[in-house]
């Protein structure tokens, strides 16, 4: 039985590295207004921010959808990028296919997906090479 959720949609612009993270900032603000605990909000915004950065680095942007339930938050990030060849490899800390110019910006250390896993209560990655990637994260509110 699914309760009715509040739904927020964000377009993640893939052409502007400087604007990456704007959706996460907005979600942080919204969840604060709704009265979620700082710890829950922090976990969600960090994980979503990593996802946003990944979409900008690898997939020319995409869609971010946030569903807010009374006791949990679901974040769905979908893109039509190149897809992830080996998801279990991508889940390993330190594994990265990001180009050097991204590393010089402070990302691409192979911590994105591991961080999303670390901060979420449930993470599902569905990816097809040449089609795109959908990442679903669930956060139980404390």
């Amino acid at each position: 039985m699914e309760e009715e959720a509040l739904h927020f949609h964000f377009d993640v612009d893939g052409n502007n590295f400087a604007s990456a993270g704007e959706a996460s900032v907005q979600v942080k603000r919204l969840l604060r207004q709704m009265g979620f605990s700082p710890d829950t909000i922090r976990r969600i915004s960090i994980a979503m921010y990593e996802g946003e950065i990944n979409m900008v680095i690898h997939a020319h942007g995409g869609d971010a959808d946030v569903y807010v339930y009374p006791d949990k938050i679901r974040v769905v990030l979908s893109d039509t990028g190149p897809g992830i060849k080996d998801v279990s490899l991508a889940m390993q800390e330190g594994y990265s296919t990001a180009p050097d110019n991204i590393r010089s910006l402070g990302f691409g250390a192979g911590m994105g997906l591991p961080n999303m896993k670390r901060y979420s209560d449930k993470l599902e990655v569905r990816s097809t090479v040449g089609v795109g990637t959908v990442i679903e994260m669930e956060f139980i509110s404390a």
Partner: peptide, 10 residues
Amino acid sequence: NPQVIRTAHM
């Protein structure tokens, strides 16, 4: 770069 600020904000 601006992402340093965003990272800190998160």
